[in-house]
């Protein structure tokens, strides 16, 4: 079986196991709805400030919440890897000819898939609140950006899981990166309202790439070239973190 076949087999395994956890499914679907409803209420008046490209904060916020949901679930993706490590599942995989990269990519694809599903929920709730999110093209870009940022951070998170192998360390790392990724981005606030130095730094933030791509329809003047660039950067980011996680496998195995 080739690398893609193995990745799909392992992707189906994690999806099947997740689908057997009704509580997880419940939270996966409710959480993004909850965030969108909550934030859109809390920040209702924020568009009175200048710098927002649209009058409706919901329209502004929906892509942001989709991305935020994706990057949070991506950051935590390593927890599943730690569980597999603890239960000896990974060691069993390692004694088969299965590619290490397929073990990692099965989980990365899963995170991307789940993030895309969650983004879809956000878009539906947004629609119910009156946000069109740029029509079909807008929806497709938001789904792609959400899936990619979820997958990319999942690669990083799985790598960290293989290096630390402890839930506590994994939680510490996920917490440590989450808020900076959020604050060095325009998820909740207009770009023009972010202090200059933070705005500069945010250019290196993959989450910001995802937000910029996803929010193109409410930011006048965004060209398709820019959207393509951001999505392309996210593809590169995902490939890089996937490679990182695969490398972490070698590091992990050296310690056995």
């Amino acid at each position: 079986m080739n690398a893609v076949g193995q990745t799909l087999v392992l992707f189906r395994r994690v999806m099947r196991n997740l689908s057997r956890q009704p509580i997880w499914i419940g939270f996966m679907l409710v959480q993004p709805m909850f965030w969108l409803l909550l934030y859109s209420q809390l920040f209702r008046r924020i568009t009175d400030l200048h710098g927002f490209g649209t009058v409706s904060y919901v329209d502004y916020l929906t892509p942001g919440i989709a991305i935020m949901t994706a990057f949070f679930s991506g950051s935590w993706a390593g927890m599943g890897m730690i569980e597999d490590l603890d239960r000896g599942v990974i060691e069993r995989f390692l004694t088969t000819p299965a590619l290490r990269s397929a073990i990692v990519w099965g989980r990365i694809v899963q995170s991307g898939f789940v993030s895309t599903l969650q983004a879809l929920v956000v878009l539906l709730v947004g629609l119910a609140l009156g946000a069109g999110n740029g029509g079909v093209l807008g929806w497709l870009v938001i789904l792609a950006a959400s899936g990619l940022i979820g997958a990319g951070l999942a690669g990083f998170s799985n790598g960290i899981a293989l290096l630390t192998r402890r839930e506590e360390s994994m939680i510490a790392v996920a917490n440590f990166i989450s808020l900076p990724l959020l604050f060095f981005s325009s998820i909740l606030i207009a770009r023009s309202l972010i202090p200059g130095w933070m705005r500069g730094a945010s250019l290196a933030n993959p989450v910001e790439w995802a937000v910029r791509a996803a929010r193109w329809h409410v930011l006048p003047g965004t060209s398709w070239g820019q959207i393509g660039l951001y999505l392309g950067l996210l593809v590169v980011f995902t490939a890089a973190t996937g490679l990182f996680a695969t490398r972490c496998f070698s590091a992990y195995q050296r310690t056995l």
Partner: peptide, 17 residues
């Protein structure tokens, strides 16, 4: 790896499957 079967000391089966 293709030639061997391995039954580890601590089970490596997937409990959720």
């Amino acid at each position: 790896r293709r030639a061997i079967g391995y039954v580890p000391q601590a089970s490596g089966v997937d409990r959720e499957a």
